[in-house]
Design a protein around this nucleic acid. Structure first.
Length: 852
DNA sequence: ACCGCCGGGTGCC
DNA sequence: ACCGCCGGGTGCC
C-alpha cells in the first residue's frame, strides 16, 4: 500500500483519485492534532528554492499561490524527500534534493514550520521556483539559522508579498407566499428565508473564485483547480437573538424541500414513497429571485444560476436534522406547534432519550429530526451511529458556536455527518477568538479553508498580526456565507424589529460598617498574597489562589455567608504557600478543593487551551483548571515535554485530578446561619417598591453565584413573592417547566425568576420579564448582555429596565471598569487576541482589580 | 531544460 | 589526450 504511493516511472502521471486522496489526507493530517499547531510563531526569514519533477504530476499552481510541503520519510529514492502540493492536495512536484535535506532536518526536528509560495507560477514543465518561509518559536531561531547556513543556504529576512482584491456584492430580493407556515413572516425574516433558499439552490461559487479559461482560480490563495470546487450549500445565519432564526429555519424546511420546491402539504406521503407530487401550488412558483451583482461599479442583473444537481447527492434524502443544546429543544417544539399550520402534516421526530428509535430508515423518512449535541456525540462514539448513517438533506446546527472548538467530540461528530446542505444558527459567531470561526467554516466545507493550514495562512495569522488584507479577506469570506442582522439593522430603511427601549442603571450599594470591616480584612489578606505573587512574577502559577481571593471578595460584596469557611481555611492557611510538601492523598484533596472553588461558585472560568468555558474540568498539579480533552491533547502531543499552558510547569496525564461526583451541598447550613446583607436589602426594597407600583411587572434576578440565589430565596418567601428558580443544575424537563410557568400569564404565576447567569445564557425566552436585576458583575460583559437578551427580544411589550448592583469601593467597581475596556476591545479589534496576550492582560486585570 | 550534468567523440589553426 | 572543448542525450525524489 505504502510503496505504491511513490511508485511511478518516467512519463507516468499520477492522475488517479486514490493518490490525490491520500495526499490530501497527508496534508490534513489525521484530524487528531487539529488545534495543536501554534499559529503564533515568528517569521525567521525566507529563501528561494526549486520544485522539481513537475512533469510527473498533475497539480496546478499559479503565480503567487501557496503550496504546502509534506515530508515523505518513506520515499524509496530519498528519505529526506519533501513533497509539494497545491491547496487542493494535488501533488505538484518535489523540493530539490539538496534543499530537501535541509527541510527534512528542520521539519523532522520541529524547529520551524515551513511554508511555500510560488513566486512566478509555472514557466516550464520541469521545475519552478518556490519561496520558502520559516516560522517558529523564538528559541529555535538560532538552531534554524545554523541549519540553513551550515548547508550553505542563505536566509533572507522579510515575508513574501500579498495581494489585495475587491469583491462584488450580492443583493437578493425575493417575494413569495408561504403556505405551510401560519405565522406571517416579518420582512427581515422573509429576507433571511430568501437568502437561505438562494444559498441552498444557487450553484454560483463564492466571489473569491474566478473562472480563468478551463480553470477555477481562487483569488485568496492564488490557486487554481481543474474541477469545479464544491460550493457551500448553506451558510451561517448569525442574526441577533430574538430575530426569529428558528421560525425562519422552519419556514426554510417547509418551503425548500428539494431544488427550491416545498414540502408537500396536506395529506402525508408514505415514508418510502418519493415525493413527486405537490398538491398545492409551490411557493416558489410565485417566487421571483433576482440577483444584483455589483461588480467594479457596474451593475448586472441576472437570474440566480440554477442549481446543477450534483451527482453525489442522494436524491431520496429529504430529512432535516436539527442539532441544538438541550436547553432549546423545547423551544423548537414550541415553535413548531405555534407556527406550523395544523393541517400540515409534518413528520418531526425527537431523537432523544434512551428509548429513541435508531432505525435509519425511520429517521430518513422524517421531515425533521431533532436532537442534541450530546446525543449526537454519544452516538458517534459508539459503533454504527444512526445519525451518521442517514443521508440527510440538511443539517442545522442551532447555537452553532457550541462547536467552535474543533477538538471536542461534539465537533468531530458534527463534521462527520452526511448531508447535502449545512446551516449554522448562532447569535454570536465569534465569541473569543478568530479560531472560533474556523470550525464553522470547516463544517460548511468552505473550500479550501476547511483545511486548517489554508485558514491559518490566509486568514488567521494575517488577521492576528494586524494585516489589513487578512482582515479584508476574512470579511469577504464571512460575508459570502453569513447573514447577520442586529436588532438595530434596518430593512428598506425601517428597523428590523421595533423593540421596546432598554435602559441600564447602576445602583451603588453601601456596605454597613460591619460588612465593610469584614470586606477590608479579606481584601488586605488577599492583597498581601497577590502582591507577593506579582512581585515574584508567579501570578499565573498561582492562578487558582488568585481566583479564589477574587471570588471571595466578590462574594463578600453579595453576602458573606456565600463563602464556605472550611474551604477558606484550608486554602489560605495551609495550601497556597507550598504544594509539594504534602502526601499525595492530601495533595489530591486540596486540588479538588481548589477545583471546587474555581468552578463551584459559578464563576465563569475559561479554559486557556480552548478559551471556552471549562467543560469536563480537571485540575493540574500546578492548580490550573482546563477541559480534560484540551489538556489531554496538549500532553499527548508534547509527551514528556508537556508543560502547563498557563505557568509552564511540568504536567503529566496521570496527575490530572478530576472533579469528584457532585456532592450534595449542605444547604441547610447556609440557611440556618442566614443573615441579610446590604445588597440583599437593596434588591428587596427595589422589588417591594416595584410590586407596590405595578404588580404585573415580572423580574429576573440574576447572579453568578447559585448560593446567593439560595440566600435570596429566604427574604423573597418572607415578603410573599411567588418566584421560580432556573440554574445550571436543573435538567431539561424541569427547566422547560419553570420557563413555562414563568412565561404563563395565568393568575398566580410567579413574578420573579431567580436565574443563574450561565443558565440564562442561550436560547431561552423570558420575555414575560421586563426588569432585570444583575446582582453581581460578570467578568465577561457579553454574558450579561446575552442574559438580558432573554427578555429584551421579540415579544417584549414593555420597556426593559436593567439594574446593576455594584458595591461602592469594592472589587466590583473595578470589574465594571474592566468590562468597559473589554467592550472597547471587542468593538475595535474584533475580539482577536492571541492567547499569550490574553494571559498578560489577565495579570493586568488582576492587578487592576486589586489596585496593585 | 533557452539549464547543468554526464560521458563519448575528438583534437593545430 | 592522464587534458579541454564540443555537442548529443538526458532529466524528481
Amino acid at each position: 500500500m505504502q510503496s505504491r504511493r511513490w511508485f511511478g516511472g518516467a512519463g507516468f502521471s499520477f492522475a488517479d483519485d486514490q493518490v490525490t486522496e491520500t495526499l490530501s489526507q497527508a496534508i490534513r493530517g489525521t484530524g487528531e492534532e487539529l488545534d495543536r499547531e501554534p499559529d503564533t510563531g515568528v517569521l525567521f526569514g525566507s529563501l528561494r528554492g526549486s520544485v522539481v519533477g513537475l512533469r510527473y504530476y498533475t497539480g496546478v499552481v499559479n503565480k503567487g499561490e501557496m503550496v504546502s510541503l509534506v515530508r515523505q520519510p518513506q520515499n524509496p529514492y530519498d528519505c529526506n524527500a519533501v513533497m509539494v502540493a497545491n491547496v487542493y492536495g494535488s501533488q505538484v512536484g518535489h523540493i530539490k534534493r539538496e534543499l530537501a535535506v535541509l527541510l527534512a532536518n528542520i521539519m523532522d526536528n520541529n524547529l520551524a514550520r515551513v511554508e511555500g509560495v510560488v513566486p512566478f507560477g509555472v514557466t516550464n514543465q520541469f521545475t519552478m521556483s518556490v519561496v520558502l518561509s520559516f516560522w517558529g518559536r523564538e528559541e529555535n531561531r538560532d538552531a534554524v539559522l545554523r541549519q540553513i547556513t551550515s548547508r550553505s543556504f542563505k536566509l533572507q529576512s522579510g515575508p513574501t508579498g500579498t495581494h489585495t482584491h475587491t469583491y462584488s456584492l450580492l443583493f437578493v430580493c425575493v417575494s413569495f407566499d408561504l403556505q405551510a407556515v401560519c405565522t406571517p413572516l416579518l420582512p427581515h425574516q422573509k429576507q433571511a428565508l430568501s437568502w437561505m433558499c438562494v444559498c441552498e439552490n444557487n450553484a454560483a461559487l463564492p466571489h473569491f473564485w474566478e473562472v480563468k479559461g478551463e480553470l477555477f482560480y481562487n483569488t485568496l490563495t492564488h490557486s487554481s483547480v481543474r474541477e469545479r470546487p464544491q460550493r457551500v450549500r448553506g451558510g451561517i445565519l448569525a442574526d441577533d437573538m430574538g430575530l426569529g432564526k428558528t421560525l425562519t429555519t422552519i419556514a426554510l424546511i417547509l418551503s425548500n424541500f428539494h431544488h427550491g420546491k416545498p414540502l408537500p402539504k396536506g395529506k402525508q406521503s408514505a415514508p418510502q414513497e418519493k415525493v413527486r407530487h405537490y398538491t398545492h401550488p409551490r411557493p416558489f412558483d410565485d417566487c421571483i429571485i433576482w440577483c444584483v451583482c455589483v461588480s467594479l461599479g457596474k451593475s448586472v442583473v441576472s437570474p440566480v444560476e440554477a442549481a446543477s444537481s450534483q451527482s453525489t447527492d442522494d436524491p431520496a434524502a429529504r430529512a432535516t436534522l436539527i442539532i441544538c443544546p438541550l436547553s432549546v429543544l423545547s423551544n423548537w417544539l414550541d415553535q413548531l406547534d405555534q407556527h406550523v399550520r395544523a393541517d400540515v402534516k409534518l413528520n418531526v421526530y425527537l431523537y432523544y432519550g434512551s428509548e429513541r428509535n435508531r432505525d435509519t430508515h425511520f429517521l430518513s423518512s422524517q421531515h425533521m429530526v431533532l436532537t442534541t449535541y450530546n446525543v449526537l456525540s454519544a452516538d458517534y462514539s459508539g459503533s454504527a451511529s444512526p445519525l451518521h448513517t442517514v443521508s440527510w438533506l440538511r443539517v442545522v446546527l442551532d447555537e452553532g458556536h457550541i462547536i467552535r472548538n474543533p477538538n471536542t467530540q461534539q465537533s468531530k461528530a458534527v463534521l462527520k455527518l452526511n448531508t447535502q446542505r449545512r446551516w449554522i444558527l448562532t447569535g454570536t459567531p465569534i465569541q473569543n477568538n478568530l479560531r472560533d470561526l474556523w470550525m464553522l467554516v470547516a463544517f460548511l466545507r468552505l473550500k479550501p479553508f476547511d483545511v486548517r493550514e489554508w485558514w491559518n495562512r490566509v486568514i488567521q495569522r494575517p488577521v492576528t498580526q494586524g494585516d489589513k488584507t487578512g482582515l479584508q479577506n476574512l470579511q469577504a469570506l464571512v460575508k459570502c456565507v453569513t447573514l447577520r442582522r442586529t436588532k438595530a439593522s434596518r430593512v428598506c430603511g425601517r428597523p428590523l424589529v421595533s423593540l421596546p427601549e432598554r435602559s441600564v442603571r447602576i445602583e451603588e450599594v453601601e456596605l454597613t460598617q460591619k460588612e465593610r470591616e469584614e470586606y477590608e480584612l479579606a481584601r488586605t489578606e488577599g492583597r498581601t498574597t497577590i502582591s507577593r505573587y506579582v512581585a515574584e512574577g508567579t501570578v499565573l502559577r498561582n492562578y487558582a489562589d488568585v481566583l479564589a481571593i477574587l471570588v471571595r471578595l466578590r462574594q463578600f460584596c453579595c453576602n458573606t455567608h456565600i463563602w464556605v469557611k472550611c474551604v477558606y481555611t484550608h486554602t489560605f492557611c495551609n495550601f497556597c504557600s507550598r504544594l509539594f510538601s504534602v502526601t499525595p492523598a492530601e495533595l489530591r484533596e486540596r486540588l479538588i478543593m481548589k477545583l471546587r472553588l474555581v468552578l463551584g461558585t459559578g464563576s465563569d472560568e475559561e479554559c486557556a487551551v480552548c478559551l471556552d468555558s471549562v467543560r469536563l474540568p480537571v485540575i493540574t498539579h500546578c492548580a490550573h483548571v482546563y477541559c480534560r480533552p484540551c489538556i489531554a491533547e496538549v500532553i499527548r502531543s508534547e509527551q514528556e515535554q508537556a508543560r502547563c499552558p498557563l505557568c509552564r510547569g511540568q504536567i503529566k496525564a496521570s496527575e490530572l485530578v478530576e472533579f469528584p461526583l457532585e456532592e450534595e451541598e449542605e444547604e441547610s447550613n447556609l440557611l440556618e446561619n442566614w443573615r441579610s446583607s446590604s445588597k440583599v436589602e437593596a434588591l428587596m426594597s427595589s422589588l417591594l417598591r416595584l410590586r407596590s407600583e405595578d404588580d404585573s411587572i415580572r423580574s429576573l434576578v440574576v447572579s453568578q453565584f447559585t448560593r446567593f440565589l439560595t440566600i435570596l430565596e429566604i427574604p423573597l418567601r418572607e415578603e410573599g413573592f411567588k418566584f421560580v428558580r432556573l440554574d445550571g443544575t436543573m435538567n431539561q424537563k424541569r427547566r422547560a417547566q419553570v420557563i413555562q410557568e414563568f412565561q404563563s400569564d395565568a393568575p398566580g404565576s410567579p413574578l420573579i425568576m431567580l436565574l443563574s447567569l450561565k443558565a440564562g445564557g442561550v436560547g431561552i425566552n423570558l420575555s414575560a420579564a421586563s426588569r432585570v436585576f444583575l446582582m453581581d458583575p460578570a467578568w465577561n460583559p457579553a454574558a450579561e448582555d446575552q442574559c438580558v437578551d432573554r427578555c429584551h427580544r421579540l415579544g417584549q411589550k414593555r420597556d426593559v429596565v436593567i439594574t446593576k448592583f455594584i458595591v461602592k469601593g469594592s472589587v466590583e467597581e473595578n470589574m465594571v471598569k474592566i468590562q468597559r475596556q473589554k467592550q472597547d476591545l471587542v468593538e475595535k479589534a474584533f475580539g482577536t487576541k492571541n492567547p499569550s496576550e490574553r494571559k498578560t492582560s489577565r495579570v493586568d486585570e488582576i492587578r487592576a482589580l486589586m489596585e496593585l
